[in-house]
Design a protein around this nucleic acid. Structure first.
Lengths: 353, 353
DNA sequence: CTTGACATCCGAAACGTTTTGGATTATACT
DNA sequence: AGTATAATCCAAAACGTTTCGGATGTCAAG
């Protein structure tokens, strides 16, 4: 009877290295290395022999050693700025998908770490970037005064930012025009007849918080409605945060007839809060979001939102980063995309004036 | 006037290493290394001096070098078996979130790569695992005869599988009881009065495809309805695939009164297909899924499904893997979880008999 | 004065690769 | 024959770290 689980006690018993092949073929380590790398200064005969022996022995280059020597890792890093221990935010998922696939296309690996913003946020960056584990880093969800940008600029590691920061330095970024986005979205609700439009903003250290808020404000002022700060509350970008913020807004008298959230996740939270109060989203109170995450489409009712091409942005920043790493020139160092209004049922019907 | 963008021409000009500190303090590289590592055989005075100088110079250990020497990377790997170039499947996102957060908790990094199943799938595994870039690997979406499991067992790298395979070997895994799951779900629809229940199965090389299918079959046979293979089609687990499969099922005469899909994404596709045909999901045709992805909750109508705790599974397999890497004993080497029936509106009302 | 114990330090090897700068031999050209 | 040229090969250094096996000096005990 065959005993099937005599687990290998020897972990990775004897790993085959260049030296193994050298000894097997009688050539030097140098020649083996150069043969496998395809240099022209090794005879065709020997190259063949070496390649065959390597294959036969199941040789796999030790990437760590190669990285150490070449000072190059073929890896891009991404440190998710996550507060709670979960990063299953659909926004990040989508972004991650774009980044990951683009990296794979360029035969780069992706190293992911998480680190909450805060005093020791830079620790993670120092460990990954300063430790030379990656050739470049992606920075997402840029903040007003972003220490990560400062740090990376200081140590001179290639990086690309999703979002913008209020710094004097120049750095490559991709961003979506949030000011315009919220202007368009707010106008949409105004056009439907709404006059009391609540807004759930984002934490003020995030750059996009200001931009989106001022788009909202401009739309109101241009329409002669005027900005009322009582209609603005701040949420933490989560679904739960959106629900809480909505409760505050709904406690106003008279209550807003429409609520816009700075991102879709909070808007979904708004819809939950409405339901809990016995109100029907899109009928009793109109709801709008920002992002265009997949969930927005399948919510009930489907959510009116400003779509930003998150997946494509992920691809793009990754591609830009890889170009930078390779020392190529970036045709566009600063990309500002336009979000697109997607009208769905959460907007509700025009209301009588 | 200050010119703000004199970009650093020197990439990572002169990196400070142990040697730098050694020269600065007058001690040897050995002592510096041991001082920073907190060994007891270095005097308190010198340790302090060295630590201070290191801090002042902004020393960051080169992780690659450390990895090479220690033969340990503190990294777990995950290779996503993705066909299309996108992995924004909510199932993977959720799983990834669980894995990533658990890894972060244990101060491990996560290396992600993508590779479509197929003849050169193992290439990616050889590169990552054979190249000693990670201390262990996670295998997700196990297949009947899974070459990945065979390979990793062969080279003796620690790994944990999500799902099961039909192999003789013993290996650590976490899985969800799909047979039971589909039995419960099918019974649920039968209980509502359905007699013609279509089933959209998964690609047959995936182990769970068989298990879920046989759960469906057993429920039908136990209820005296009998298994009709014309009611079973195979989908590719995507939304689009689900929609196509649904079209085939709806072309039957008489058409099924309920359709169950092997995963939520396809079930969402079924609902789309129904709508396109002018049928109302949950009313004209009942729909059921499997997974419990967030989208299922916000679909309209919300989707009846067998929930599996994807996020927690991600955490768990990651934790098991890290235990294995550290040579710890696994209390449970084989974990089989029970999925939970979540009844939502896509089930529809009981139908008259 | 010798011995042993202890505290503190360090040289050198090792991890597996790539690259530099020749060395050796054969071939072709004056 | 002598010399340039090309074709092959390789020893050694380098990447930055950790660790092995002492080395050195001090001090207390015998």
């Amino acid at each position: 009877m065959l005993v099937v689980w005599d687990m290998p006690k020897t972990r990775r018993s004897e790993h085959v290295t260049l030296k193994t092949i050298a000894e097997a073929t009688g050539y030097s380590v140098t020649t083996v290395s150069r043969a496998l790398a395809g240099y022209s200064d090794v005879a065709e005969r020997t190259r063949k022999l070496i390649v065959e022996t390597a294959e036969q022995l199941g040789y796999q280059p030790n990437i760590t050693a190669r990285q150490l020597r070449q000072k190059r890792t073929n890896t891009v890093g991404l440190i998710l700025p996550t507060f709670s221990p979960r990063f299953s935010d659909p926004f990040f998922s989508e972004l991650l998908a774009g980044i990951g696939n683009q990296a794979a296309l360029s035969r780069y690996d992706l190293l992911i770490s998480t680190q909450a913003p805060g005093p020791d946020e830079l620790e993670a960056y120092r460990r990954i970037a300063g430790g030379q584990r990656v050739d470049g880093l992606l920075i997402v969800r840029a903040r007003e005064q972003d220490p990560r940008i400062k740090y990376l600029q200081e140590i001179g590691l290639p990086f690309v930012v999703f979002g913008r920061s209020h710094l004097d330095q120049d750095y490559p970024y991709v961003d979506v025009n949030g000011e315009l986005g919220l202007h368009v979205l707010t106008k949409h609700f105004i056009g439907l007849g709404h006059r009391r439009i609540g807004y759930i903003s984002a934490p003020p250290d995030l750059t996009f918080a200001h931009l989106r808020l001022s788009g909202y404000r401009r739309a109101l002022e241009e329409s002669g409605i005027g900005y009322d700060e009582r209609l603005v509350v701040i949420g933490d970008l989560t679904r739960r945060g959106g629900a809480q913020a909505a409760e505050n807004l709904l406690a106003l008298d008279p209550r807003p007839t429409a609520i816009i959230a700075a991102n879709d996740l909070m808007a979904l939270g708004v819809m939950e809060a409405l339901r809990r109060k016995g109100l029907e989203p899109g009928k009793d109170v109109a709801v709008g979001g920002f992002d265009g995450v997949p969930e927005s489409e399948f919510a009930s009712p489907p959510l009116t939102t400003m779509r930003q091409p998150i997946y494509e942005i992920g691809q793009r920043i990754c591609q830009m980063l890889i170009r930078l790493i390779n020392g190529e020139h970036l045709a566009e160092r600063h990309v500002l995309l336009q979000p697109e209004l997607i009208v769905r049922q959460s907007s509700g019907q025009p209301i009588p004036i």
